[in-house]
């Protein structure tokens, strides 16, 4: 009978050998894809979308420093999270009206209770905007197909925090999970146009986004018309700035079909046509 230390050493050797063998087998195993190995996916199943939505809303709550409606206040609350809006973070009068979801206290309990939670509508200071990012990252981890998470996070990363690389990296992560997303391609184009000042790269991305939008429309999937408007309008601006008036006019013609102010667009088109005729660059 071998002594216990020898027996223990032997068992350890067996364990390591088995671990090495199993590791190489597991690496080659077809079931070992990123999706199946994701602990969160396994643990939460389909409910992860629910959690992803919750964490996305949590990011919005953080954007308002905790002043946020609960499900009981929803009828009075804004339909779209402020954090998702590409504003500069300042509240408009409409937002203020919408954000007054608490209303007047109905009884003494409610009045007294308001001492103990945030009751004022504020937005995070630019330097603190990063506080919303953990929840967006968590939301993206739980539901990689929620496109808005990537675009919103990227917007705040590049505009407020000056983290262009991180924004691009996050958008590319979103693109890997959602290769057909025209929203992500559009936002990625903005990174190149506005932050990297690389109009050619931006144009490629926006044109690709437009093709994706057209393809989805042709398939009858009814993609977001607002996104379409944003793509063609940004593309038109880019083309106009780089002197490609004919392409800019094409984009504006398409924008006119969805714009609520077609007359204004037509004016821009006329202006560009004049420039084109005069040969101005």
């Amino acid at each position: 009978m071998p002594s216990p230390p020898w027996l223990l050493s032997l068992l350890l050797v067996i364990c390591f050998t088995l671990a090495l063998r199993l590791q190489s087998w597991y690496a080659a195993w077809p079931g070992n894809t990123a999706a199946s190995a994701d602990l969160l996916t396994v643990a939460l199943g389909d409910s992860r979308q629910l959690f992803a939505n919750y964490f996305f809303a949590e990011a919005d709550a953080y954007f308002h420093s905790g002043y946020y409606p609960s499900i009981f206040d929803q009828p009075q609350s804004p339909g779209r999270p402020h954090v998702a809006e590409t504003t500069d973070g300042e509240s408009t009068a409409d937002e203020e009206r919408e954000a007054d979801f608490l209303g007047k206290p109905r009884d003494w309990i409610e009045r007294f209770g308001r001492n103990f939670f945030p009751t004022a509508h504020t937005h995070l200071k630019p330097a603190d905007t990063g506080e919303i990012l953990p929840w967006l990252e968590l939301s993206a981890d739980l539901d990689p197909h929620r496109v808005e998470t990537y675009t919103v996070a990227a917007y705040w990363l590049r505009t407020r925090l000056g983290r262009v690389n991180e924004a691009e990296q996050f958008l590319r992560q979103g693109l890997r999970a959602n290769p057909d997303s025209c929203e992500i391609l559009f936002e990625l184009g903005r990174v190149y146009a506005e932050n990297r000042h690389d109009p050619d790269h931006a144009r490629n991305l926006w044109e690709l986004a437009l093709r994706r939008w057209d393809a989805q429309s042709a398939e009858g999937r009814k993609p977001d018309r607002i996104v379409f408007g944003a793509i063609v309008s940004h593309l038109a601006d880019l083309e106009a700035h780089t002197g490609r008036y004919a392409q800019a006019i094409q984009c504006l013609e398409r924008l006119k079909t969805v714009s609520p102010a077609p007359a204004a667009i037509q004016k821009q088109i006329d202006d560009l046509k004049q420039r084109l005729a005069a040969g101005v660059h």
């Binding site: 506080e131 990363l157 925090l161 983290r163 996050f170």
Partner: peptide, 9 residues
């Protein structure tokens, strides 16, 4: 979190 050490909330 996006290499930002200041995020704490």
């Amino acid at each position: 979190i996006f290499n930002d050490e200041r995020i704490v909330r």
